[in-house]
């Protein structure tokens, strides 16, 4: 009722401003649409190919919708390689690495963020510098070392390193997050009788859930998809992980793309699931410093 007088006279400038806002929004969505479809196209191609028969894959004219839809590609793909064994290996390696790298980086980051010690800053500099070092540089010495330790052709070579530090980038990320947690909280916990480990477990880690989730996802994806380390350390086929299994598959059936794509999709599913489950946490974001009410 009150507003009625104003409505007909709604100023022209306000209307153009609203028009402009709509225009900008439309543009933004358009850019996002183009971008995301560019990223999704290969994935859709993979799904489409995985459901095609051999004749459709090699046909000169490309079609998006397979006709007929060949579901049996999936069962055939899983039978062609010892899929379940490889899945078992992969789950073992990935879960151990997740536990190892996540707990190690959480502890090391706590040291860098909250413990005063001479040389701490310098040591952190060294850690950051090690991020600049490509893995290929250390590959051969590390390989020789692991071989001498008797870890060659053994899943140990993939698992044990995860417990030793947990990765420079993960440490860096967690350390930055821990720094935002007020020291007073740690002091209070110390007064309450907590040891440093107690402070980490009871106070710092629960407050760093978003960061820990993000790091956990990184570690999971990195190890699930890791091709390089299994390739150089594993020689027995029954010790292979899925990533390696896919390659094996590829060399045996280099022309049967539909089977390869079917196996790749099954391989990628856990990553998608993990990402969607964890998304809630890291979108929740960094809102946890509340000291005062």
């Amino acid at each position: 009722m009150v507003g009625r007088v104003g409505i007909p006279r709604q100023s022209a400038s306000r209307r153009t401003r609203r028009m402009r806002a709509i225009l900008v929004k439309t543009l933004v969505y358009l850019v996002l649409l183009v971008g995301s479809s560019a990223l999704l196209t290969p994935f859709l191609w993979m799904v489409s190919t995985s459901l095609k028969g051999y004749d459709q894959v090699v046909a000169s004219k490309f079609t998006w919708i397979p006709k007929p839809v060949v579901w049996s590609n999936y069962t055939r793909a899983l039978e062609f390689i010892p899929f379940w064994r490889y899945l078992g290996n992969t789950v073992l390696v990935t879960s151990m690495c997740l536990i190892g790298a996540l707990s190690a980086s959480a502890v090391v980051a706590y040291g860098f963020a909250k413990l005063r010690a001479p040389g701490r800053t310098a040591l952190f500099g060294v850690l950051l510098a090690s991020m600049m070092l490509p893995g290929q540089v250390t590959m051969i010495p590390v390989f020789v070392l692991f071989q001498r330790l008797g870890w060659y052709n053994n899943l140990k070579a993939l698992i044990i390193p995860a417990f030793l530090g947990g990765g420079a980038f993960n440490i860096f990320l967690l350390r930055q997050f821990y720094m935002t947690i007020p020291n007073e909280l740690c002091d209070a916990a110390k007064i309450d009788g907590c040891s440093n480990l107690g402070i980490l477990v009871r106070i710092v880690a629960p407050l760093s859930k978003p960061a820990l989730t993000a790091v956990g996802v990184f570690i999971f994806v990195a190890n699930w998809t890791d091709f390089f380390s299994p390739l150089i350390y594993l020689s027995d086929q029954e010790k292979y992980t899925l990533a390696l299994g896919l390659r094996l598959f590829q060399s045996l059936h280099s022309t049967e793309y539909s089977l390869l794509m079917a196996a790749s999709i099954v391989f990628s599913l856990p990553i998608l699931v993990v990402f969607f489950l964890a998304q809630r946490y890291f979108i929740e974001g960094v809102t946890l410093t509340g000291m005062k009410g």
Partner: peptide
Amino acid sequence: LSPKERNVAMVFQDYALYPHMRVYDNIALN
């Protein structure tokens, strides 16, 4: 000796309550 071994309790300027815990757990932690 650590604060716990000295058996001292401290009230901080910004209270330093643990934000992820309920009041009950805040008091009960020690």
